[in-house]
Design a protein around this nucleic acid. Structure first.
Lengths: 223, 223
DNA sequence: GGGTAAACGGATGACCCTCTCCATTTAGCC
DNA sequence: GGCTAAATGGAGAGGGTCATCCGTTTACCC
């Protein structure tokens, strides 16, 4: 649907969208995102913008024209992984064995956390006034609650497990992923192994400390 | 043993030690340490030196005269807590029930982590070329290994538990402590509750992922 | 009380990071 | 091939932190 040639005035070009860009600009946009993902995965979320620009082979101004603020770049860079997480949850929900689905999704997301230094930061960080992920997050919370309920009803997940314990797991895994250096992946696997054993319904488990109402959006690094 | 009055030349005054300071200087030194501990506990280890100096009511230069580098201040500020940890371990070793001692020391150290934002950072951070804690650390590793062996021999700790799983626990707890904000303490308690259940020797536990040889001194934040 | 060396603190330099400006280059269309 | 608007990139403003310098103040000893 080609537009009228002479005047088709978008009010203030609020967000042209990547498709409306000139070919070279779109190419550069992709290069920037790739460079950002690599840099975040390797060095965490604190890498300077200039380093990303250098890695992408573009000037700083180019980066800023495409991603006006630091957080907009981070948001965009991790959308792919967030989608992957959502996909893992969907798969888990389709598994006829809810406990297996539960284990699989936790293992998968934790492995992603361990493989990418920046991912967790982006995943858990509070983006000031940001609603970019809100939709995904709500959907994830619903799906998670459903999965947990099913696993409990199947008698495989302990009854005093709380949905917020998933967030607890992610936070704990985050600590391991960020702290264990080159052994992050292996350490994360072992932690998740321990926790899943704990989560499994068993004969004689004593009372746990109270669950905490951790929510995905109330988490955040240093605030 | 008073020194000769006129000439008793220490080569380059390598480290006068806090006792040799003038009264006001020693007072200020204490004020700085107190302010640093407060600030680190509240805001994490990233607070600027100037903020600590302001909180202590001294100038920046005074702080730097006493603690020439940023890390030297951090090291000194957390020595107290490290000593407390070592004490907790000693108590645990004296407990006739090694499993109870094991649980107590893990609970205690994790609670300290959760209560103090900066503590874990300081505890786990790699201090470049630093050997200040080396002695304490070696002693802690020995004691920990002994405690773990006793708890296994008592049949209370699962046989495939590895000493490095203590570090794993600390890292995981660190993630929770840093991520859960105001609920850090409660979240940490719940995590430790789950993990201790997993660590307890039980009838039918499947194989765990391989242990990782995490060591106290090979850990570190972002490297 | 007076002398002296220790201690003090504000100003300052060096460095790094985020984000902007503008002269120059380049892609897309006729 | 030439025109035009989009896109580019380096230089630099602005803000923040670490660490130092030096003129002034203060504690300690006699």
């Amino acid at each position: 649907m080609p537009a009228q040639p002479s005047h088709n005035p978008p009010p203030v070009t609020p967000d042209p969208g990547p498709e409306a860009l000139r070919a070279d600009a779109r190419e550069n946009r992709e290069r920037i995102l790739r460079a950002a993902r690599e840099a975040y995965a390797l060095h965490g979320i604190d890498v300077p913008i200039s380093a990303i620009a250098r890695r992408a082979g573009v000037g700083v101004a180019t980066l800023y024209r495409r991603f006006p603020t630091r957080t907009s770049l981070i948001t965009e860079a991790f959308t792919e992984q967030l989608t992957e997480c959502a996909g893992a949850l969907d798969e888990a929900l389709e598994d006829p064995d809810p406990w297996r689905g539960f284990c699989t999704v936790l293992r998968k997301v934790c492995a992603m956390q361990a493989a990418d230094r920046g991912f967790t930061h982006a995943f858990l960080a509070r983006f000031p006034g940001d609603t970019a992920y809100a939709g995904e997050r709500d959907r994830a919370e619903e799906g998670l609650a459903l999965l947990v309920r099913r696993a409990k009803e199947a008698g495989a997940l302990r009854p005093d497990f709380d949905v917020s314990d998933v967030v607890l797991t992610l936070l704990a895994n985050n600590g391991v992923a960020n702290g264990a250096g080159p052994q992050a992946a292996a350490a994360s696997r072992r932690l998740v192994g321990y926790l899943l054993e704990s989560f499994r319904a068993g004969p004689a488990t004593g009372p746990l400390p109270q669950p905490v109402g951790l929510e995905l959006d109330r988490l955040g690094g240093t605030g």
